[in-house]
Design a protein around this nucleic acid. Structure first.
Lengths: 341, 341
DNA sequence: GTTAGCACTCCTTAACATTGAGTGCTAACA
DNA sequence: TGTTAGCACTCAATGTTAAGGAGTGCTAAC
């Protein structure tokens, strides 16, 4: 059996209706709601076919039909009309709080949750591909040094370093010079052991303390700052009864609390790279706790290798048109943020 | 009518039993479970008295009794045996991740949630009373300066500053000198307008740019970094049916998402300052969303004015003994953390 | 190929009876 | 006077049954 235009129209009508109401859709409803001018009996025949083909499911004998994962997949891939939607301007969000990328991400994720009424998350952009822009080592007190590292894109890392013996001004100056001249402009990934050895050698005359300091600075650089993820609107899951039962809710809430699980859920997409938008429907999710959810992710790219992911989690009967449209718009705005300067 | 020893014993038995089972407690149960050797009929008489006095409540005519807020209050104030409990060592948590207070707080709150099986939160210590230890202004590129501020207790703040015109090395040096000599050792609250004016005046010869920079640095200092709160174990609320219904759960989850609401809930205590532990039972909570919860808070003090609050949110029938005991122990450990050095 | 008609399924809801835990009250007892 | 046995009563919880209705699948006619 194969999909013809009429079946397509009927399937679309079923899904549209189900997305709206959340109730199984009967043949009579379709008969009235479409412009096909077919009786409910005819629709019934077609629906039986669609069920056999796996696009729709009957929860029980005397109920209407609901879309299966395959049905949603078909809808998302071929029927959906995701037009870009009007969204708030990222630039405004950035301007409000000068230069704090982190704060902007929090604002974005909050905005998205409010706009879509689903649970949302966003990962901070990756930095390990980024170039070092600036390193500053300063003495805070007798036995504490402060290392501040600025990475391309103006992300800042700092670390307090304990030192046993006091380091004099001259040495500080020399260390700073050394670190900056040797490391600036390098991507963090490019820094390797031989390089560190060379650095230490150049610091040479000074004893182990210097070596320790260099080690700490390097560690600060390569430190895989545990995946930074911001979330918002987790309570939105209670708006959808199919997710709001105790078991599901508890699982989802704790997933949204564990950054690692979140990172798992919104792994950077493997396919459809042209749009940067990914849709995972119900069972398509690899994470076992997400089998009753749909997840839509978008990868944003601030340039200079700073990529991050936005994720939206809702019920299977999520408003895919709206979500994908919104994500497209936001992705575009984020992508353009730093690019044209 | 007044509380005698027998009534007290019965009330205690009712509460103990209810804390365990979560079911209304009947007269027969008490008759058997206590060493009073009284028939259920006698217990019934006493229970009627206790109800009249407001310590217990009957959900409906043919049910047992459950404690009222007043009953819990009596229990917490006079009957509870909160012995300090064995808890993990904070020092170990700190040692794991060198010097990052923030990470330790996250570890503590996670540990607490696991240990108590309630939802937990902890606020980062206040800093506005703290002294400036060190200011470092550095040039990142042609039109960006980076200001790094270290506060007593080694908390670090940084801010990127846009500058219109380039600032030469000499000026940078001078600015750093100026900021450090004038501001170090001051509490943030001590910095006022006349001081800033004086600073600007001293930077004198240089034009407005310097003024801007100083303004930004000052702002970084006084910036009331939006209340930093870490939470954990929010999904624990699903373990308690009285909190797990849709409405309550949704309200609680979103409360735990909004830092402002959290700050509201665990406001630093007003009474019982000798222990630093506060218990709010059900309706005693000011926050309207918390009327079905009990909240226990503890104020910790790292010294140098660095105070923060730990909060534990659970159902009314929370295991007060355990929670208060655990909080006491953790508070003690935190208080001692920096003190003896 | 389409549709009207009809028997059938099975969820939903309401009404009703049953059960059992627990109470309040009364009267008897020590 | 305090304690207790006994008993009628209440009411949530549970189970049963019946009615209602939405929706289906199938058949036969158009």
């Amino acid at each position: 059996m194969e999909m013809d235009e009429r079946k397509t129209k009927i399937l679309q009508a079923i899904i549209r209706n189900y997305l709206e109401t959340g109730e199984p859709v009967g043949s009579r409803t379709i008969s009235k709601d479409t412009d096909l001018n077919l009786s409910s009996a005819t629709i019934r025949n077609e629906m039986a076919d669609l069920e056999e083909m796996g696009y729709i499911i009957q929860p029980h004998t005397s109920a209407g039909r609901i879309p299966s994962d395959k049905g949603y997949r078909f809808y998302v891939d071929t029927l959906m009309e995701a037009k870009e939607r009007e969204v708030a301007d990222m630039k405004d969000m950035l301007l409000e709080r000068q230069d704090k990328l982190e704060d902007m991400l929090k604002t974005v994720v909050k905005y998205l949750a409010k706009d879509t009424q689903y649970a949302t998350m966003i990962t901070a952009p990756t930095t390990h591909l980024n170039k070092l822009k600036f390193i500053q080592l300063s003495r805070v007190d007798a036995n504490h040094l402060l290392a501040v590292v600025v990475i391309e894109g103006n992300m800042i890392r700092n670390r307090m370093i304990d030192v046993a013996e006091e380091i004099d001004d001259e040495t500080m100056l020399k260390l700073n010079m050394l670190l900056n001249t040797q490391l600036n402009g390098l991507a963090i990934e490019q820094i390797n052991l031989s390089m560190v050895a060379k650095l230490k050698q150049q610091a040479g005359i000074h004893s182990g303390v210097i070596g320790d300091v260099i080690d700490e600075v390097i560690e600060t650089l390569s430190e895989d700052k545990d995946l930074e993820v911001y979330t918002s609107g987790t309570n939105n899951i209670f708006k959808y009864p199919e997710l709001a039962d105790n078991e599901n809710a508890s699982r989802l809430i704790s997933a949204f609390e564990e950054k690692e699980i979140l990172g798992d859920i919104i792994q950077p997409g493997d396919g459809s790279e042209e749009t940067g938008i990914q849709v995972y429907i119900g069972g398509e999710n690899k994470n076992s706790g997400m089998q009753d959810c749909s997840v839509v992710t978008a990868t944003y790219d601030l340039g200079d290798g700073m990529k991050g992911t936005i994720g939206i989690v809702g019920p299977r009967r999520m408003d895919y048109d709206k979500v994908v449209g919104t994500l497209k718009s936001i992705k575009t705005k984020l992508d353009d943020l730093y690019r044209k300067e």
